[in-house]
């Protein structure tokens, strides 16, 4: 259980204390990853199924490694997109997997609300690995972890998130977590990429990159996701890069010296980030990847722990 929750669907549902519960445990998990033998028996006999309806290398691998380090068995199930006219429905797929008795179902889906829908229909714990443009809770938590590791506390810090906010589940999970830890969030992008009413989630909105990053402690650069853009939101990546991309010159002139750069990956080099920034001293992008494993270990540990005890009692000796 994470606090009161047996699923991890959205950081909107988590309190500050529940977020800190995961982040604090992730510190110990990260220590495990630094050992020569990266294996602890905590989740031995537990099954984690990664059910991915969208292609993902990073997140799926991260959950898989997290499960394996904890000695859980991990199965990857890559499914075709759900459709009403052909193929198996999302619910049927999930029910079939459930029949194999997993302890945790890790789900990624292009439809917002899909993990919530599954959580209502299956008995095991559901962890969202990203749903549509809704939330990507483990990414939000690893962003919090990375900034906390860097700054100690997020109290009074300012974080700018730059890019296609409309289509970004990362931005929403960051928005539902960073302020709970005391940080202020600024959103920046062309007006076509800023969704209606997003300021009601507790952020300020900027269209000028320089203003948005001025005085910020961290800048989260989002990937410009061509595959999600159905409308002509920007003329081309060239103009986008000129006004909303970050290169070494802008970083040097506009950012505080200690400000760090994050990116959920994969990077479009030369579009939202130039290589010299992505690989430069401000970048904590690879820290994010490593912290992602630790955070996901903490999530799996907290959720599989509770579910497993119930089940063990019912197994005859």
């Amino acid at each position: 259980m994470i606090g009161r929750h047996r699923h991890l669907i959205a950081l909107e549902d988590l309190s500050r204390e529940e977020i800190l519960q995961v982040l604090d445990l992730a510190v110990s998990m990260k220590e495990v990853l630094s050992r020569p033998v990266k294996k602890v028996p905590s989740l031995r006999g537990k099954n984690v199924v990664n059910l991915f309806f969208e292609t993902s290398t990073r997140t799926r691998s991260s959950f898989e490694i997290a499960a394996k380090v904890l000695s859980a068995d991990a199965l990857n199930w890559t499914a075709a997109q759900s459709s009403t006219t052909k193929g198996e429905t999302l619910l049927d797929t999930a029910k079939n997997l459930e029949a194999m008795r997993p302890d945790i179902l890790v789900v990624r889906h292009s439809a917002s609300g899909a993990p919530q829908f599954l959580a209502q229909h299956v008995k095991c714990s559901v962890v969202s690995a990203g749903d549509g443009a809704h939330e990507h809770p483990s990414q939000g938590l690893l962003d919090c972890y990375t900034l906390r590791e860097r700054f100690g506390s997020l109290e009074g810090r300012t974080v700018a998130i730059v890019g296609d906010i409309s289509h970004s589940r990362v931005a929403r999970s960051d928005l539902h977590s960073l302020p709970k830890l005391g940080a202020k969030v600024r959103l920046c992008g062309p007006p076509t990429m800023i969704p209606q009413g997003v300021e009601r989630l507790g952020a300020t909105v900027h269209h000028d990159l320089r203003t948005a990053v001025d005085g910020a402690d961290a800048v989260i650069m989002l990937r410009i996701q061509h595959e999600r853009i159905g409308d002509p939101l920007i003329p081309n990546t060239r103009e986008y890069s000129k006004y909303w991309g970050l290169n070494a010159k802008k970083a040097a002139e506009w950012l505080k010296p200690e400000a760090v750069i994050l990116h959920p990956g994969p990077i479009n080099r030369g579009v939202e980030l130039s290589s010299d920034v992505a690989d430069g001293p401000r970048s904590v992008i690879l820290d994010q990847v490593q912290n992602g494993v630790a955070v996901r270990m903490a999530i799996l540990y907290l959720l599989a722990g509770g579910a497993g005890e119930d089940r063990a009692e019912k197994v005859p000796a």
């Binding site: 929403r172 969704p195 009413g197």
Partner: peptide
């Protein structure tokens, strides 16, 4: 409307659903 599935506005933004204005 495009691919909008609910009313465009703060609620659709929070839910991450595509909005139709």
């Amino acid at each position: 409307v495009g691919k909008g599935v609910m009313n465009e506005g703060p609620v659709a933004t929070r839910m991450g659903l595509k909005g139709a204005p």
